[in-house]
Design a binder for these strands. Structure first.
Lengths: 389, 389
DNA sequence: CTGTTAGCGCCTTCAA
DNA sequence: TTGAAGGCGCTAACAG
């Protein structure tokens, strides 16, 4: 008798071919396909928590003290080579895994660094995180990732989680709604270093890793001007973020330095929520005197605008030239390819962790925060090259 | 005297405009732009680790015992309402944050669930993780994310990290190179539940969350057949993964059931490394008798093939119709839009955590693993609709 | 070179 | 309703 995995039906079960050498079934009652792997039929697992081997177990097995075991495990200098080997052997035999909770409690350090990002759906933050891990992991640290989901409250909650987890350092990129960094003050009070990256506020006293946003924006807008754009719009971000203010300023300065009019109605503010990008695009393309160029504060906003433009039959780049920011992989895939300012994403993560480590190892009683400014590179693709040029 | 933030140069510094009301400088020696925020000039932070408030601090302040504080903090029943309030007040005043390391050590549970994914650059796994967090966080658990980077060894390392972190449960999606799950056996031995999702091996005895890959593949290939494809290729995945075997089988069965020839030379194996996708595409499109349809095991592989086809001047869909798998956001952005099989990504994560919790709370000594099979949905876009049809 | 002892911060009996 | 005491697993002096 075959029973449906999903609804436990036994009658309306039909055979549905053989797959991986096993009979496949179809349950007509709940519209489910399934097979019955051997595992599910016969094997059962007791899920109650078992005792995990500890250094005491190793000590008992060898009739030595647990301190000796501890020293052996950490390759301490003053230890007999024989006993060291013996300890390592037993550790391996018992499949001993150190308990990081106990280690952390005893040492007052968790070997964990916390990282708060607004989202990790787009590629930017994942690449930063990968870069961070590339430095942190070999140094014995792992990374606890929190996403604030562009919510200020969630960001606050995240700081509390990381505080409770007793992370040894923090990497943070703020939401577009974060009015101040008071919720990070507790880390400072506790002596836990913070490095802000990418999305920082203007008023923070801490190490930072950013790119030269002003310069990138300036380059991007200049590029649009040089490609014949007369009315260049800007999708700007929340002005609590330095990054957004700098990009806006770069946009403005590029216009002014090229004797072009600065039209506030061509600046539209994006709150960084995914849906908001589409609203901005709609709004921008619906006005009677439409822009013929766009510098968007990031690639997702640029791409959203390109989508909306396509739906409206607006030709890119001839009717609307577009420049984004970040060079996320997707920007190379859309049609036409998106001109954008490449950010060294992994490099940002690496630099941030290095700054963090530097601060963690700083013994002076007077640490001076550093700001690392990385360069952007203009990547020219077809979205910005008008044909008549 | 202005000193370069980066190289400490003092002479070759030029003013470079005003930004955010502050003077901006340019260092000609090291090609750096910078400003000097007030913070960096004057304020200094002592980075030595400070004492964090503990329940003992609260107890001392109120002249009560730490046990009482502990009970008050957890809303224990047998506690005087007055003292409870007093404790909470002091806790708030001191900005007390419970030490999860100590909690975990005492309770033998870390309130953490570990999650191992092969990568999080593409959108699929991030969405699954977000779904997982949506269930885990409200339940008081946080998620420790590890990426194996498609490396078997890294996956093994990850299991050790999670073991050391004493996670209370595991969610895992395997690499394409993982030959067996021996490295997960230690969790079973320790009574730590595991739920595999998406990428599972055939021989595991554990709860799983998958989609009906066979059915999805069958649908996708049938769709290609119905749209006039005569020679349908398949970019398949590593055959250690059930998901890849099922998709391959769905492909084969769809061809056979429609009386089409099964040509092994049209099946090409992708090892799931990003570069490999391009090789597969190259290989596939270089053969003399080129396919006129492609079912790729995932969207990134499908999109890579579309890129290569474009470079070669092969028209999509007329010369090559393409179907992917997963419905990652990018698939809607490429040109033409990619026909694909939508997976309920967040739902996979939620379901996996729910299964995990179920297993964690299972007190019977004989737990029976469950497999949840979610449905896929064919999303038809232009990449598969040949014009003559 | 090794053992003893005393914590790290919290929870949980057991008594009162 | 509260306090005292012991333990979670590990590290770190301090003695030998």
């Amino acid at each position: 008798m075959i029973k449906c995995v999903k609804c436990s039906e036994v009658d309306a079960i039909a055979k549905a071919g053989i797959i991986r050498g096993k009979q496949r079934y179809y349950c007509a009652r709940c519209d489910y396909y399934f097979t019955l792997p051997a595992a599910e039929i016969s094997i059962a697992t007791n899920s109650s928590r078992k005792h995990q081997p500890t250094i005491v177990d190793i000590a008992r097995e060898l009739q030595i003290s647990k301190s000796t075991v501890s020293r052996a495990l950490h390759g301490h200098a003053d230890i007999n080579e024989e006993t060291r080997k013996a300890v390592l052997d037993v550790a391996k035999k018992l499949d001993y895994q150190p308990n990081l909770l106990a280690y952390g409690l005893a040492k007052s350090k968790s070997l964990t660094i916390g990282i708060i990002v607004p989202e990790f759906i787009n590629s930017f933050f994942p690449y930063v995180i990968i870069g961070a891990q590339e430095i942190a992991n070999p140094a014995g640290y792992h990374v606890l990732i929190c996403q604030s989901n562009e919510s200020y409250q969630t960001e606050i909650d995240n700081t509390n989680v990381l505080m409770s987890s007793r992370v040894d350092g923090i990497l943070a990129s703020l939401t577009g709604k974060t009015p101040n960094v008071d919720h990070f003050k507790k880390f400072e009070r506790a002596g836990i270093p913070i490095v802000y990256f990418n999305r920082v506020t203007t008023d923070v006293c801490a190490s930072k890793v950013i790119v030269d946003d002003y310069d990138g924006a300036y380059q991007g807008v200049t590029h649009l001007i040089q490609n014949g754009c007369k009315r260049i719009a800007h999708i700007a971000g929340p002005q609590n973020l330095q990054i957004c203010r700098d990009r806006l300023q770069g946009y403005k300065d590029a216009l002014l330095h090229h004797d072009m009019e600065l039209n506030e109605s061509l600046i539209i503010y994006h709150d960084l929520n995914p849906e908001s990008a589409l609203h901005c695009a709609q709004h921008l393309l619906d006005v009677p005197d439409r822009p013929d160029g766009l510098f968007a504060l990031n690639d997702p906003a640029a791409i959203a605008t390109m989508q909306v433009a396509k739906e409206k039959g607006i030709r890119i780049p001839d009717e609307l030239a577009v420049v984004g920011f970040s060079n996320e992989p997707t920007s190379a895939l859309v049609e036409p390819g998106l001109t954008t300012l490449a950010q060294p994403m992994a490099e940002i993560g690496k630099t941030a962790v290095n700054l963090l480590f530097k601060q963690m190892n700083d013994t002076s009683d007077c640490f001076i925060p550093e700001t690392k400014i990385l360069k952007t590179t203009l990547i020219v693709r077809k979205s910005s090259l008008k044909r008549q040029f």
